[in-house]
């Protein structure tokens, strides 16, 4: 279980996270929605220790990761997979090597076993036959799928997805959402997805949380979020210009 407790973080005097509290349950998919620039990525980076909070705690299975030494933190990080917003694929090596990278770093598998694993996950994400291309040679949707494959190859307990569908056409978005669902059925990870695609959130999420003004203002099942009485949540999920969210803010 992952718990964020009274998390506060400012950049250059501007509070991005303000007393944020949330709990992510094991083996569930939680989708965090919120406006662009609202601090969703910052929240996600706290969970994996890329950013340290000004105050508050990040607890992974009861361990406060901000008190850990580098080596201990790295042990915790091995439980994680992360899909970055723009892929963050290593652009000097090909698709195969990108996906094999965590395997080579953290296991002593033989070359033939590495091959088996990579080919198997490549077919899971629908990229069989693309393994020799370089990251610059493939489309945005393919890059995201390579990112998913790289994040899942070591079968992690927890997977973080930073806007896996943003910037993709609706068909590709739906394909990625289906991919996440089928991978979740297969690997049973705890999933945290950042998104502002509300339809995708309903589809993939067991739980949906809304981040607004630096904290979580509402959390519940997709049905509960759909029928939320909170005017901010309501405005966001209906995608209306009119409501308490002023679009000149931020």
């Amino acid at each position: 279980m992952i718990v964020l407790e009274r998390l506060t973080k400012s950049f250059n005097g501007i509070k991005v996270l303000n007393n944020l509290n949330i709990r992510f349950d094991d083996q569930k998919i939680t989708v965090v929605i919120g406006r662009s620039g609202g601090g969703k990525s910052v929240m996600l980076k706290h969970i994996i220790g890329l950013i340290r909070p000004d105050s508050g705690r990040v607890l992974i299975n009861g361990i406060n990761i901000n008190t850990l030494k580098k080596k201990e933190l790295n042990e915790i990080r091995k439980k994680f997979g992360m899909v970055f917003q723009d892929g963050a694929l290593f652009d000097s090596i090909n698709i195969f090597e990108n996906i094999a990278f965590p395997v080579r770093q953290h296991t002593k598998l033989k070359e033939s076993e590495i091959k088996d694993r990579v080919y198997s996950i490549l077919s899971d994400v629908g990229l069989s036959g693309q393994e020799l291309k370089m990251p610059a040679e493939i489309s945005g949707g393919m890059r995201k799928r390579v990112g998913v494959a790289r994040a899942l190859i070591l079968n992690p307990e927890i997977v973080l997805f930073d806007e896996p569908t943003t910037g993709l056409d609706p068909i590709m978005s739906d394909a990625i959402n289906n991919l996440i669902i089928s991978m979740h059925n297969k690997f049973k990870f705890t999933g945290i997805i950042i998104s502002h695609n509300i339809e995708g959130a309903y589809k993939t999420g067991d739980v949906i949380a809304m981040l607004y003004d630096g904290s979580i203002i509402e959390i519940g099942s997709p049905a509960e979020i759909k029928s939320s009485k909170n005017p901010v949540v309501n405005q966001f999920v209906t995608g209306s210009m009119n409501g308490p969210i002023n679009f000149n803010m931020i």
């Binding site: 990080r77 970055f84 694929l89 290593f90 652009d91 770093q105 953290h106």
Partner: peptide, 10 residues
């Protein structure tokens, strides 16, 4: 974010 990716992969 490739440096972040390295860190995340421990």
């Amino acid at each position: 974010e490739q440096i972040d990716a390295l860190e995340v992969m421990a």
